[in-house]
Nucleic acid binder design. Sequence first.
DNA 1: TTGGTAATTGCAACCGATTTCATAAATTTG
DNA 2: CAAATTTATGAAATCGGTTGCAATTACCAA
Lengths: 343, 343
Amino acid sequence: MDKEITIYDIAKGVGFSPTTVSRALNDHPAVNKKTKQRIYDIAAQMGYRSNLFASNLRRQHTNTIGVIVPILNSNFQSSVMAGMEKVANEAGYNLIISQSLGTMEKEIANAKTMYNSRVDGLLVSLSHDSESIEHFEPFFKKGIPVIFYDRVAEHKQSTSIVIDNVQAAYKATTHLIEQGCRNIVHITGNLKINVYTDRLKGFKYALVDNDLPYKKASVIATDLTEEAGIKAAEQILKMDPRPDGIFVANDFCAVNCMKALKQAGIAIPDDIAVVGFNNDPITRVVEPNLTTIDYPGYEMGEVAARNLTNYLDALSDVNITNTVTLRSDLIVRESSLKKKLKK
Amino acid sequence: MDKEITIYDIAKGVGFSPTTVSRALNDHPAVNKKTKQRIYDIAAQMGYRSNLFASNLRRQHTNTIGVIVPILNSNFQSSVMAGMEKVANEAGYNLIISQSLGTMEKEIANAKTMYNSRVDGLLVSLSHDSESIEHFEPFFKKGIPVIFYDRVAEHKQSTSIVIDNVQAAYKATTHLIEQGCRNIVHITGNLKINVYTDRLKGFKYALVDNDLPYKKASVIATDLTEEAGIKAAEQILKMDPRPDGIFVANDFCAVNCMKALKQAGIAIPDDIAVVGFNNDPITRVVEPNLTTIDYPGYEMGEVAARNLTNYLDALSDVNITNTVTLRSDLIVRESSLKKKLKK
DNA sequence: TTGGTAATTGCAACCGATTTCATAAATTTG
DNA sequence: CAAATTTATGAAATCGGTTGCAATTACCAA
């Protein structure tokens, strides 16, 4: 097995001190250009690779960004991560990733690991049942930047990257109303999470602004899983009068709900129009194609990572921006286009 | 900002030397139990956290596993990663992740970064156009374990985690034949990649074993994207005689091909039966539901990571296993069940 | 020639934990 | 009770870069 080459070996090779070698390798301006070149050449020739621990130990930073996600294998989250990885990689940062699997317990453990791994910054989407963000206090105390995205929490020391969930839900609901729906049901997730409370707000506001009554019974809170969609469908079928529109806070759940309704003989969109949320690929596969909100995951990942790397590289000196809101649009497809409006 | 607590601070606090503190914290047997307990208590009380760089620098390992994937945002890959993360996390390893975006160039750069980050081991799924694995030589030379999964390459020093693609494709094709198909088309990906050549082999063997002719014209090599599926459908529509079965090496492509065929008035499965590959969630959404091969991504991630951590923790002393083959099954759904066989 | 400044380079002290070797104290054995 | 072990602890070297400060040389103007 090859022995590892150090700057001391290089120093011996070129007849300069380790100090100069170190400086040359870091492109320090106080080193003669010719010296630098010679050192580069010899280093390359000897197959030198820098020892990041030694460097990190001395410099007190790691060039590593921690990411904590609820779950990796969802279309949205993996898109986010793809965007993050691209930006982080380009900026010279490594990404270390862990999933909370939706529990606060694991999120706390992960935060601790990240803290011990001394990440330079943290990108977090909160778990389903995270009721506090106390476990990030150590980061705040030590001035390690934490950026929340999608599922965020308010904190004066952290930035949040979100879409305007209220507005998006408002658009979605308004669209249903424009299609003639007068009795709309909203299927949502855990109402402790900002995204779902905001979407509920948008739903409510749209009703009110269109002089439609808002009834608590029209909101079905679920865990947004496959089964939840089916159960919600059953619940809807029992309602009297039967709803004529559904706004679901998640595509996957929406699709399963739709399937169950179709099996029960409901015509979509004519009997019931459906709108989802996220623009998951399945929305273009299900029949009829699902109207949904385009939630730009990849872009969100890029923005979150860029925000962090800029801050770390002191490109953005102060952390002025507290919230970044990305645009999100309604994508209209057949699942919500009632016939009477079609030509 | 809090100052960082070191073992020296603790040493001062308890009146023992840093040596003893270090040993106590690592649960070394040569430290008195009472001493240990006192050190634990004080460490906790002072809010001590170990400095991983110092430790890594001295110990020459990082407790970090590098993962290089072609692309993060695919259902299969993110499932794999979810499985990996779970196992690695439990075994006390961090995962650093990078994507090659399908190009060998970026894969080489990523490998270099991982090498410099001194990962303890590497988990790799090769990029589309990786024609050699020379860029992993430094790892092999230094004895750093590299495990390939899904898209693998032969190397005497590395383990591969795969499914039996030949057998899976054989099953899929045989199933189509059993359904009465006599003129089957195979849509595949880049034939330089093991998974696709193997699937092609399975396709071929199944034909031969059933006394059906294998024609080169029946194999459509594509990039398996959404558009590729549509283009392939157009190509199929022009064929004379028209095929009665399609075996696609990827669900996403299969679904789009199916949609295009349906639009052209083809009845599925009666005119043409379709089988996909991967068991992506969309297979249960498309109509008719797509018959496919269950490719256990999550499990593959678990197995790959476990294999690596066991090796690193010297639980499996020698690297005996060179290839691990996971089981994969055919899941039959409506897209391939021709009427005449239905009751 | 002299004083002064800029350009290069090196010494040595870190960063914080681990580990070899030696030592002191406690315990067992003959 | 002396000798041989065992148990518990510490001093100091080490891992491989980085960096404050000092030293040397080169260069320029007066």
